[in-house]
Amino acid sequence: MHIVDPTSGIASSETVAVAVSEGSRAGALCGLSNSKPGAHDLLEAVGRRLADDHGIGPNGLEAKPSAAVGADPELLDHLAAQYRLAVVAIGD
């Protein structure tokens, strides 16, 4: 699984191509919200951009229970097992 940090820019075409080429488009991309205000909206916008630019959109949206704590290892394991690419929202 590749984790793309939105603060460092949009996923490169190469990163997205690798994620898609590893299997079918189903399950290729998920969003991980840090549960801050606006994170869900940010993930939806990034998902739309990836769908428009690369033909893949988010197949799932997951969230940490709180912005004050890190993601549980179980959540990260679940994401790694289900998806090939994750976009993590850290914005307010």
Rank of each mutant, 00 (worst) to 15 (best):
G47M: 02
G47A: 10
D53I: 13
S33K: 07
G55K: 14
P58V: 09
L50K: 01
V46T: 06
R48S: 09
A51R: 15
C30A: 09
G55S: 11
E62L: 13
S24N: 11
N34G: 02
L50Y: 13
A45N: 08
D41I: 03
E44C: 08
H40Q: 05
C30G: 00
A63E: 07
G47W: 05
A45Q: 13
I56E: 08
K36V: 01
R49D: 06
S24P: 11
H54E: 11
R49Y: 14
I56F: 12
P37N: 04
G31Q: 02
A39P: 03
L43V: 04
L42V: 10
A63M: 10
C30F: 09
G60F: 13
P37F: 10
P58C: 10
N59Y: 12
G57T: 04
V46D: 00
K36I: 05
D53L: 15
L61D: 00
G27P: 02
H40T: 07
A28V: 15
C30M: 01
L29C: 07
A39T: 02
V46P: 01
G27N: 07
K36L: 13
G60I: 10
L32C: 00
L50T: 06
I56R: 10
A39Q: 01
P37Q: 06
H40L: 05
H54L: 09
V46H: 08
H54T: 10
L42H: 14
G47L: 04
A51P: 06
P58N: 11
R25E: 12
G47E: 00
L43C: 05
G47K: 03
G57A: 08
G47I: 09
L29M: 11
K36E: 03
K64L: 05
V46I: 15
K36C: 07
K64E: 00
R49F: 15
